[in-house]
């Protein structure tokens, strides 16, 4: 445990040393990067809707991204539970180790 904490501290030190050094080495140019999704190349309707949203309304796009990711995560979790229950394996005795 002591070794772990030492390593973490060492890592933090390395990060704090590396980041400024690397940044000063680059220096000059500092312009914001703007990305425009190329909707001309998107063929599906849903894809086009999201790519358009990305170009025009980033806030709504962000809300969508969070809601859809969370919703899909929950959907997958529950559907996997159902599928695993059907395999006939005893899953009650397994350890819960997941993050």
């Amino acid at each position: 445990m002591r070794a772990l904490v030492c390593m973490i501290l060492a890592l933090c030190t390395v990060i704090s040393a590396l980041v400024p050094a690397a940044v000063w080495a680059a220096g000059e140019k500092a312009a914001m990067l703007v990305v425009v999704a190329d909707t001309r190349r998107v063929t599906s309707d849903i894809g086009k809707y999201f790519a358009d949203l990305y170009n025009t309304n980033m806030w709504l796009f962000a809300v969508w991204a969070v809601v859809l990711t969370a919703g899909y995560g929950v959907f997958l979790g529950f559907s996997m539970d159902i599928i695993m229950a059907r395999t006939g394996l005893d899953l009650k005795s397994r350890k819960i180790v997941e993050h």
Partner: peptide, 18 residues
């Protein structure tokens, strides 16, 4: 870091440490 054009190398080296 992205604005400075250094995001790739810096994050990669931090990851190596991590």
């Amino acid at each position: 870091l992205e604005r400075l054009g250094r995001v790739g190398p810096v994050v990669r080296w931090v990851y190596v440490g991590f």
